[in-house]
Structure formats: structure tokens, C-alpha cells
Write a protein that binds this DNA or RNA. Structure first.
Length: 446
RNA sequence: CGGGGCGUAGCGCAGCCUGGUAGCGCGUCGGUUUUGGGUACCGAAGGCCGCAAGUUCGAAUCUUGCCGUCCCGACCA
């Protein structure tokens, strides 16, 4: 993309309403525009990041064998009356009345609807196990939205639902989700720690939240410092293997790690040596639940067993806060100059800064770089504006592309351009061809 | 939902107390200049001063109500 033809409304000054780094930077980098309290438009740059995160979630869900579908944002109230949650949910649920005076609602979650879909099409144990998911906008009418997209009212979320014949099968689904979530977050360049959590209004017997450590997190967390050394890495997991999934779960959840909701100081002190006890704050970016027959029983989601008996299915639900992750990623990856995107989610793979627009050598070298990078399947952002070098650098730093190729007449005289890493600030001079090769190599494994 | 702010140009703000021609900086547009970390100068455009009612000869300014929005707390992914 050529910046002169793109839409990137960056702000020099910080909007007064933004309090935390991610919100401030998303506004300044022209990623979002607030339309109402907790409701945002996603401008092109922000939309690119959102879509990349969404894409990673899709890929990892399907790798784990889960099946995508798409349910509507608006739901009829009667499904919720059936489950008993229409009255239980409270004012957080946005309730609307249509022209025929029918009660509908903007879905805060989809357990009822997915259960309805399941019960009308599945009736045999032979169709199990089944895990369906979608990535869809939700609405929760928070009393006090804040922190930009981290706690908006409208938010994009992946929510998935597993249907299993037995409790054991459902617990495997739970474990499988935990494993796939670890892998999902790691691909985004995030460490998200599974922590034992309260079940909240979704309800359930077993639940873990995934938290990204950040000072601006909404939850207090307590954990064994050894847990931050764990890496999922690129291990090859058979998602159908009960043992393998169970093993990963044990590895990642055996050490003490809890949010303040479930924190038990006595247990913490007993299980964790003092030197390894950590107290910090975290941003919740996902949660997994096992809730058994909580919805299948009242809503009649049953299947016939081998013996012909009809039994309610065992279910769980699992969420990843896709839009919230954009904010969480920035909270975990920024400095005083702006955002620093991990390679896995960056809106553009690298930036090209032309220090002297209009200089034949510089313009030509930039065009060549631009084409060469694209030929490698990369997506560069070429700053071809008639701006001073300082302004271009400041913009690049702000929007946080992990790599920058700087091209100027001075370097070109020696046949070199400069490749700079946004995170470390280190830069190296090399030929344009070498820079293209290096950037391509960096992204080859991502 | 309790407590406290704030709504004036795209953004950041002053003016309000003490009523009388709506301002500044950034950005934008035109020009000159400059060109390796937000360059300098000249010029220009851009406002129902959140909305409504009231007081007044006269309201951005005072009063009342409403709306929006932000912060702290409670709540929440």
C-alpha cells in the first residue's frame, strides 16, 4: 500500500478522553474512531489488525477440528426465556422491540441459539463429538465502558460450543480448547496465562481465564513465577489425543495462577515458595467453560445413545475476545513513540520510508523495493508522501510496523538502504536486495 | 447505579467568575522555504460556543431541565 493513497488519519495530539496507552495509541494511529460510549468504527489500519487476529483464531480453531458457522447478532427473546436467562441477565443485555412488538435482543453470547440449532438438527450420539464456533459482534450494555476497545459495549468475539455424549468427552473438549488457545495467543506474540476463575453468569463447573500480564489489566492476578517460563512452542499436538491434551493442561495449570476472584492467600503461600510468588495485573483475553447439561437439559438438547435412551448432551463454551485483543496486544507491546506490533498480527509487514520524495534515485529504489517485497508475498506500507523525514519516521514509529526500510540518496550512493527493527531500534545497512531477502526470511516462519 | 468533571473549529485548549464584535496552538488548503527524527515564514478556509426553555436591551458567559461524554467506586469479557 502506498501511504499517499491510503486512509491513515494519525493524530499528533492525544485525545483527552483516552486514558490508557492502547486507547491513546489506537486513536493517534488512526485505527479507530469512537462513535458512542464503548462503540467504535474500525478505520483501515485497525481493521487490518482486527482481521489478522480473526484469521489466526479461525485457523487455530479449525486446526483443532472446530467448525465455523455464523449466527445473527439479533436474537429472539423467547430462546432466552426458555433457558431462564432472559430475566437473569439484567440490564447488561440490550433489549429491543421490533415493529410487531416482539421482544428481541442484541446477543451478549450465543448458548441459547447454538443449543437451538443443535437440538433441531442433531439427535444421535453418532453425530458427536461436535464443536461449532463463530466470530461475531456482541453487545453488552456495560454501565461504564472504558479503555477503548478493551472494554467496549460492542465487541467482536469468537465463541465456540462443544457438544459431547459424556462428561469425559466434554472434559476432553475443554482440554482441547485450552491447548488450542495457548497456541492461538502464542501465534499473536502474546503470553496468555490460563488461570482458575469464577464462572460468572455463563455458569459452570470448571473454568479457566486466559490473562495477559499488563499493568493496566482489570484483574488482579496471583501466580507462581515459573509459569511465565512456559512456552507452547511449535509442538505438534494431536487434538484428538486425550492424553496429549490432558498433558498440556496439566503442564500449564498445575502451578498456582488465579485471579483475585478465586485467589486464596493460604493456598498461595502453601504451594508457592515466597521467592516465586507474584502479584500483578492482567487483561482477560479468553475464557473456557465446561457446564455440563445446564442448557441442554432445560432446552431439550438430547441425543439417542447406542442403547436408544435419550440423554442431554454435555456442553461447554469458549470465548476469545477478538477486538479486545487488539488493545491487549498494544498494552503488551508499545513504547513512548508508539505501538510495536508482533510480526504475527502487524497490519503491514514492513514500512518503506523514502527520505527524499522526488529524488529520482530514491523514488526508483523505493518502487523497486515495494515491488520486490510484494513479489515475495509481503504487504509493505510505502510512505511516499511529500513529508519531511522526521514526520515519516514519527508516523512509522507510531503505527508500529515491526520493520522499516529507510531509503535515501545518501545511502544509495553507497548502494545501501537501512533496515531497522522497531522493537530494538537496531538498524543495519545492506543492499536493497539483501533487505528484501531478510524481511522475507523473518516472515517465512510466521 | 452512587460520587465528581467536562461539552467552544478536525484535535488540544483559553474565554465563563465580573453578560456587550468568538480566540490561541496543532492539523487542513494555497504559496515560499526546507529536506537523514514531527523545518520556518506568509496567506486562507473552517464555529447554531451540546440541545431546549428562562432571566436580560443584549447570553459562549447567569438560572433550570435534558442529552452526550470522561474519571473514581460498585459491576463486567
Amino acid at each position: 500500500m502506498r501511504l499517499s493513497r491510503y486512509f491513515l488519519p494519525v493524530l499528533k495530539e492525544t485525545p483527552a478522553d483516552a486514558q490508557i496507552a492502547s486507547h491513546r495509541l489506537m486513536l493517534r494511529a488512526g485505527m479507530i474512531r469512537q462513535q458512542a460510549a464503548g462503540i467504535y468504527s474500525w478505520l483501515p489500519l485497525g481493521y487490518r489488525v482486527l482481521r489478522r487476529i480473526e484469521q489466526i483464531v479461525h485457523e487455530e480453531q479449525q486446526r483443532a477440528g472446530h467448525i465455523p458457522l455464523l449466527m445473527p447478532t439479533l436474537q429472539p427473546a423467547d430462546l432466552w426465556q426458555e433457558s431462564g436467562r432472559y430475566n437473569a441477565y439484567g440490564p447488561e443485555m440490550l433489549r429491543i422491540r421490533d415493529r410487531h412488538d416482539r421482544d428481541i435482543l442484541y446477543g451478549p453470547t450465543n448458548e441459547e441459539m447454538i443449543t437451538d440449532i443443535f437440538r433441531s438438527h442433531v439427535s444421535s450420539y453418532k453425530d458427536l463429538p461436535l464443536t461449532l464456533y463463530h466470530i461475531q459482534w456482541k453487545f453488552r450494555d456495560e454501565v461504564r465502558p472504558r479503555f477503548g476497545v478493551m472494554r467496549g459495549r460492542e465487541f467482536l468475539m469468537k465463541d465456540g460450543y462443544n457438544f459431547d455424549l459424556t462428561r469425559e468427552d466434554a472434559l476432553h473438549a475443554y482440554n482441547r480448547h485450552l491447548v488450542s488457545y495457548l497456541r492461538t495467543y502464542e501465534r499473536m506474540g502474546l503470553q496468555a496465562i490460563p488461570m482458575r476463575a469464577e464462572s460468572g453468569p455463563i455458569g459452570g463447573d470448571d473454568t479457566h481465564e486466559f490473562l495477559v500480564l499488563a499493568d493496566t489489566g482489570e484483574s488482579g492476578v496471583f501466580y507462581d513465577s515459573e509459569i511465565t517460563d512456559l512456552r507452547f512452542g511449535d509442538r505438534d499436538i494431536d487434538y484428538d489425543s486425550v492424553e496429549q491434551c490432558q498433558g498440556v493442561l496439566e503442564e500449564f495449570t498445575s502451578r498456582y495462577a488465579r485471579t483475585d476472584d478465586t485467589h486464596d492467600e493460604a493456598v498461595f503461600q502453601e504451594q508457592v515458595p515466597e521467592a516465586r510468588r507474584r502479584e500483578a495485573r492482567g487483561i482477560e483475553v479468553g475464557q473456557i467453560f465446561y457446564f455440563g447439561t445446564k442448557y441442554s437439559e432445560p432446552m431439550g438438547a438430547t441425543v439417542a445413545t447406542q442403547g436408544g435412551e435419550r440423554v442431554p448432551v454435555h456442553m461447554g463454551s469458549h470465548g476469545i475476545g477478538v477486538s479486545r485483543l487488539v488493545g491487549a496486544l498494544i498494552e503488551a507491546n508499545h513504547d513512548e513513540n508508539g505501538i510495536i506490533w508482533p510480526e504475527g498480527v502487524t497490519p503491514f509487514h514492513c514500512g518503506i520510508v523514502n527520505l527524499k520524495q522526488g529524488d529520482a534515485a530514491a523514488d526508483g529504489a523505493c518502487e523497486d523495493l515495494y515491488k520486490a517485497l510484494r513479489a515475495k508475498g509481503l504487504d509493505p506500507l510505502y510512505d511516499d508522501r511529500e513529508e519531511r523525514a522526521g514526520a515519516k519516521f514519527a508516523t512509522m514509529d507510531l503505527i508500529g510496523l515491526p520493520w522499516r526500510i529507510t531509503v535515501g540518496p545518501r545511502g544509495l550512493k553507497n548502494g545501501v538502504v537501512e533496515l531497522t527493527c522497531r522493537r530494538t531500534g537496531e538498524s543495519e545497512e545492506m543492499t536493497p536486495e539483501a533487505a528484501v531477502a531478510r524481511v522475507a526470511e523473518i516472515y517465512a516462519g510466521i
